[in-house]
Design a protein around this nucleic acid. Sequence first.
RNA 1: GCCUUGGUGGUGAAAUGGUAGACACGAGGGACUUAAAAUCCCUUGGCCCGAAACGGCCGUGCGGGUUCGAUUCCCGCCCGAGGCACCA
Length: 911
Amino acid sequence: MDYNFKEIEAKWQEYWAKNHTFKAEVDSSRPKYYVLDMFPYPSGAGLHVGHPLGYIASDIYSRYKRLKGFNVLHPMGYDAFGLPAEQYAIQTGHHPAETTETNINRYRAQMDRIGFSYDWSREIRTCDPAYYKWTQWAFLKMYGCWYDPDLDKARPIEELVRRFETAGYDGITPEQWKAASPKERDAILMNYRIAYQGVTSVNWCPKLGTVLANDEVKEGLSVRGGHPVEQKKMTQWQLRVSAYAQRLLDDMESLEWTDSLKEMQRNWIGRSQGAEMVFKTYCEDKEYDVTIFTTRADTVFGVTFLVLAPESEWVEKLTSASQKQAVEEYLAATKKKTERERISQTHTVTGVFSGSYAVNPLTGDKVPVWISEYVLSGYGTGAIMAVPAHDSRDWAFAKTFDLPIIPLIEGCDVSNQSFDAKEGIMCNSGFLNGKTVKEAIPAAIDYVESKGIGHRKINYRLRDAIFSRQRYWGEPFPMYFKDGIATPLPEDCLPLTLPQISKYKPTETGEPPLGRAKDWTYEGCPLEKSTMPGFAGSSAYYLRYMDPHNDSALVSREADEYWRNVDLYIGGAEHATGHLIYSRFWNKFLYDLGYVCEKEPFRKLVNQGMIQGRSNFVYRIQGTNTFVSCGLKDQYATTEIHVNVNIVHNDRLDLEAFKAWLPEYKDAEFILENGEYICGWAIEKMSKSMYNVVNPDFICDTYGADTLRLYEMFLGPIEQSKPWDTKGIDGVNRFLRKVWRMFWDRDNYLVEDRKATPAELKSLHKLIGKAATDIEAFSFNTTVSAFMIAANELGELNCHCREILEPLVIVLSPFAPHIAEELWASLGHKESITYASFPEYIEAYTVENNVTYPVSFNGKTRFTVDLAKSLTPAEVEAAVKSLDQTAKYLDGKNIVKVIVVPGKIVNIVLK
RNA sequence: GCCUUGGUGGUGAAAUGGUAGACACGAGGGACUUAAAAUCCCUUGGCCCGAAACGGCCGUGCGGGUUCGAUUCCCGCCCGAGGCACCA
């Protein structure tokens, strides 16, 4: 009987679905294990071979854990709100829900073909009202809470109100609170709520017509679509993520994440320790206190000017009449620049003098106050003290505008560049002279604190998350505006479902698309018209999987206390500063309120690498319809054009297929080399627009899902990015057929009931041992190698022994589940192999040929000699004695292992 | 510029202080076959000596170091990938 993968795979996929083989239930008699994939956004292009890489790895691990006796939760769903479906809707008028539904069905069909062990009864979609009810619910909770710095956690806002009413808090007295109007009170509370509305400078993308979060912008362009982004002041809903900065930093310690990913989060959070200091500042005859932040309090003696961010609120107050025009011109010019322009012009120094002067609190010197865009309004206080001798940016500014530079460290030369290093001995610095920089920093802060002109301060780069999007296809905010005050919807009105609208574009008056909805009101008051961003729905989805059909809670206490958090999370590293921060924040907030029992959502995280595409190019001679082969292209002026990789074989273009590919190439002519058209190539991201997408369905058709699974694992370490390349896929396919032939030849079932031989047991147990350690270590490529070695050895031994084949099939089943099920059934088992147990590794079988033999040397040192093959003990002893030169480095306590190959001693191992 | 990674045959890669290149692809040779497919066997890092060898030398980006022994640890360079980027 032949290995008919098509029949086998269809049969077992149907069996698993029909028997709910992978359904998980709370079961306190067994230990739980929660394996999660980052759920996909169902795009129109369908799955390509890169997507399943992580899914296959997590599936292998899930199946392995089941065999090890764990109750495994392994769910899947869809991150279904998002821009592409909405853009498509704007162009075609199709409702985004329809496109999303179509795409999801395609994704599901593709995933089913690969044989994943998901519990589909727990599927969730972020765009499903029954799901986003809980996204809205969490938002209401955040709106109803503030961050109490004393308890260091989120608490109901009523507690803050009580403080205002009784003892007063944060500079607001009970009298002031009582005197405040409802609107004023609302404004005060907005400064404390975890979810709050406020005016900030936001990343505005005019092309997309919406605001973007910091992690949705790269190099001044939107991550989705690559459109320019500019800064704009707007009233937006925001989440006070910054309140959790320190906890997000501290709790990372306990996580099993890669160092690089932790480092990325640390940089994003950007903790920096320093001091805030007050400079008395005079504008004409008025006096102001300007607070600055610095990490180099030791350099106050070198301050020769202050700088304000253009957006700083000090700018207006500190601009003198004589400088007013110059400042206004500068502000206007700055405002006009897009984010991208500001970034690309990082090294051109711009600025304007404000006309006012500050007094250095330590020296009493009068220094000018400048305005420059190199100071950011969103960080620290939006104002800095400039020490050009010891900060490169201040130095460049001082050089450009000819401001004085005072060196503060003995022997440093600041004529050509600043001296930024935090080392050396202080000079020109009054009471700090003679101290090292490391001593001077705390000494300076102590002094400033004692004088009451400054204090220690920790700043974070992490900003609050902008939570409003001027889009249609997202979760509506459960908020309405009563007398102009943002008011939460009662909880029992959730979910607030998306209304139908006629067009998906923003309205003519510039309102978000929801402005088109009829009757978008609650009790006659207007509802919020913006919607939530993409990360809203993905922030707590791992909790919902634990209890996906619960209508009365996000997750029941019982389910939460059993499943707790994700043991293994697999996904791309591109979410380091987005989803993985927001999710941790969201989880901590729910933890503070007692809704979840774990501080962190994802215990262990593995970042799978990207599978890149290998693109092919043709070269069109400019202005013609003639294409020249790659080797000759330098002789012409050509344009490089992506060509569909499916009509190119080994970089040779199929000319007929090319002409038939697109109408514009129907009459194409070619200049060949050696009778062939050779294409150029490059490794790029796999994407539809580059025509380099390889579809997993195609591999499943020609080789089968089991081969696809093994091959993707065999390509190399899971964390590594690599180009997709099918050469080599025959190797794993051959291996599967080899396993099949241990059971069947053309006509007969070969399995024998007999005792296994020592050689067979050795091969088997080598495999079991290697597979168990490698799977635990996520080294799936070496596990596949171990399978091949075992198959070769057992094939050579002509092994058809049941005692060997049964455990072998179990070990294979996480990787190639379909063939494993089929062979398992052929051995007479009635139940799915999912319910089998992973075989025990027995070391005795694998070492039986290597005798360990103790030898004494110089009467003291004990050697343990690993005897290989044919050496006699006497020969070993003789060989060891010849080691006098190395033996003198060994003392009596060390156990030494001597590795011997026939005839000579190769190496010595100290143990 | 800063942080994090990585650099090993023709290719994907093993080996985390102990015989470098497991396993696989590709390539070459052979067996079976009328033939093909399938399957199986041999060779395959480089150089040198040789009739042959279980013969010698070199070899893990480059240069040093530690060690009896380094792909692995330390120092300094070079190159690639990813992240951050006026964060005071």
